[in-house]
Design a protein around this nucleic acid. Structure first.
Lengths: 411, 411
DNA sequence: CTTAGTTCGGCTAGTTTCCCAACGAAGTGG
DNA sequence: CCACTTCGTTGGGAAACTAGCCGAACTAAG
């Protein structure tokens, strides 16, 4: 099981990746600055930059202003060269997002689609169609990879969806199916859990970017978590880390769909929310309305200080905080990011959650752990997928194809 | 914060470390086998082995038997060259362990010492004395490092014990104090939490060795956990990961010393055990008896099928399982190792815990996660410390001093 | 406007580390 | 004893980084 030892090619790869990583974190830098930061010589930096330019990962930027002496020529990421593509399978929609090397979302499209009635094959057909459109739109840029976000347990190594109750999927060989339909290489097509990818998105470009220890909690009918520890995604031994929805919170709690009692999901899942704040027949509980619309109704009621709504939200926020405090005590993250519907009702859910966490975390921790709403909204998972796809090239820039010699136009 | 880029020295270090790591995991191998495993050339392997030999990390072993052709000369770790030293501060004792490169414990000494009445300074004096004796005993071998295990929250970067309630320590600059007293370089002296080090020991040499995702749970008055995910210790943003003792398990549970209700510790800590299985005045509850003796009494009662004892153990085992199931759902480890007093009563605590975990873990997980008792007993923490100290040299073999040229005796 | 000073980035020579190919060494099998 | 196989070393060569020099480009001062 020992990782590969390092040969010279790996050394080069590591240094190319280092340059890309620094440019990504610090923005444009001159070669001289890169040399100082890296400890490598200017000559080495120049060859690295030349190779990255040939691979269309970086390009010449402006001229560094100010200071004495010859100004440096800025080297910056080239947003036009490479794209990462994220796909998303939801219960009632499919979506695609494309990000450039700078981490900017250059395309985001969501199409309504009833996955349940379409079934696996027709869903894959449609997903391939959506992905194919985006691949065409990418044009001359190199599509570094495609990552599919799925709300369920995923065997990432094989690209198989083991179990996605909400989609009624079980043992779906999604990576194979898509690669075949798209003619896209299988090794650049991955499938992952939505919470994991959302956590990745928050880590890469979210408000708490580059926080090495963070946890993302999805708020939906099911509750899941994506865990990043020490700057690396924690998947667990069989890839099922973050399945926090079925933590036992209350031995006497209500029955859960999993058959047990008092799972966290029964306290803070969307079903619990609707049950707590609306009688049957209330439009808020109408499963045919889009979730954003229902959230808007809840928000307006809360703003009108409707007592039942406020009470329900407070109760759920508190239960949310109790669960979060457990995860905090296990993992000691710097920040817990609440996504999905939690982020849609920040004023009423996150504040009570914060109070519970502060009261329950280990003393010294309470002062440092932050609980915040996601600002990526419902696009977090697919954006994370697109970023994860990009990271293939970030981690090994030699994956990007080398451009022909710069055709120097003769005078 | 990008890590160091790779220069040639780092390349060499990585390859030296790779050889050591493989030899540690696979035992002795010939140069030819190492070349095949690594993908490096035989020539490169030869130079790597030569350097490691000069640094006394490996030595020539026997001759590989069997097969056609010239038999290979085995290269194996040299147990005499380097030592890792682990110190342990307990409430009623200090201890020291020394391990060699093969991971074998070559010395283990425990001295009774009342830390509470001695206070911080006298404890550090005594600890330095114990460590000094061991440094002398190490002789010609190179002491790679010293790691001190403390039952509490530790700032590992600074070597400061932030809070250790059982020792009544707060903000103790242990690394500085010891380094000064011992004349040992500060950068090779670290302080860490006992659960983290126990997890390290299990990962390095325990029965579940090399399991990349494992969790170690200490059973004592306080409950703590050491988390290894993806082969790396998870410390959390401020180093307080694994503080599972104060997870809220039951909103209506008994009062905890931390002031809240229903913490896991109140259900499965040693205090809960004694409370459940003995009336006041019972010798089992006598805090002046050593813990091993009290456990022996409990064990004999359980073997005699004493009803109160069996009931208490079953109840605690079940609560143990509920808590473990939460951690399992968050982290999806391959194994949960129960240490401390849990390991002393395996037949009566671990089996009920297993049943709860199987019933509560996410479906697919229940089949794969294992719950076992530690077989390192009460020495896990200090052994882990010694191994952690060794890992400094494993990770960068150039830390070990280079021996003079092999003084070839003239004929 | 000229000159001095500073910094940038490319260039060349040199070092380190790894790779390749060939070869002697040390066994087995006939 | 000889063919055969495999091991580990050796020498030549390539890849990648280093050191230091130089022209280029800009600022500052006279």
């Amino acid at each position: 099981m020992p990782e590969q030892p390092t040969d010279r090619a790996a050394l080069r790869r590591a240094n190319l990746a280092w340059v890309v990583r620094v440019l990504r974190e610090q923005g444009g830098l001159s070669r001289a600055q890169l040399a100082v930061l890296s400890g490598l010589s200017k000559a080495t930096i120049s060859t690295l930059v030349a190779e990255l330019t040939a691979r269309r990962l970086v390009r010449a930027g402006g001229i560094a202003a100010g200071g004495q002496g010859r100004p440096g020529q800025i080297v910056e990421l080239d947003p036009s060269g490479v794209r990462g593509i994220g796909l998303e399978v939801g219960v009632d929609h499919l979506a695609v997002t494309s990000v450039d090397t700078a981490g900017h979302v250059v395309a985001d499209r969501r199409v309504a689609f009833d996955v349940l009635s379409a079934g696996v094959d027709r869903t894959m057909d449609k997903l391939a169609e959506v992905a194919g459109d985006e691949l065409t739109a990418v044009g001359a840029a190199y599509p570094a990879g495609i990552t599919v976000s799925v709300p369920g347990l995923v065997d990432t190594a094989r690209g198989v969806v083991r179990l996605a109750p909400r989609l009624r999927w079980r043992e779906v060989t999604l990576a194979d199916g898509l690669a075949g339909r798209l003619g896209f290489p299988l090794d650049r097509l991955t499938v992952d859990n939505d919470a994991n990818l959302s956590a990745t998105a928050e880590y890469e470009i979210g408000g708490m970017k580059a926080t090495a220890d963070l946890i993302y909690v999805t708020g939906d009918f099911g509750i899941g978590a994506g865990v990043i520890a020490g700057g690396r995604l924690v998947r667990g031994s069989i890839g099922y880390a973050g399945e926090v929805g079925h933590m036992s919170m209350d031995p006497m709690g209500p029955q859960c769909s999993c058959g047990r009692r008092g799972c966290w999901e029964t306290q803070v899942g969307l079903a619990a929310l609707f049950h707590a704040l609306a009688a049957p027949g209330d439009p808020v509980s109408d499963p045919n309305r889009p979730i954003e619309e229902r959230m808007a109704i809840v928000r307006s009621r809360a703003e009108r200080r409707d007592q039942r709504t406020l009470g329900a939200l407070h109760q759920i926020g508190a239960a949310l905080g109790v669960g979060v405090s457990i995860v905090v005590n296990v993992l000691s993250p710097a920040v817990v990011i609440l996504g999905g519907y939690f982020a849609a009702l920040p004023d009423w859910l996150i504040e009570p959650a914060r109070i519970e966490v502060a009261a329950r975390a280990v003393v010294a921790e309470a002062a440092t752990v932050r609980v915040v709403g996601s600002d990526l909204g419902f696009t977090a998972a697919r954006t994370g997928g697109a970023l994860a796809a990009l990271s293939r090239v970030y981690d090994d820039p030699t994956q990007a194809p080398e451009r022909m010699q710069s055709t120097e136009a003769p005078a």
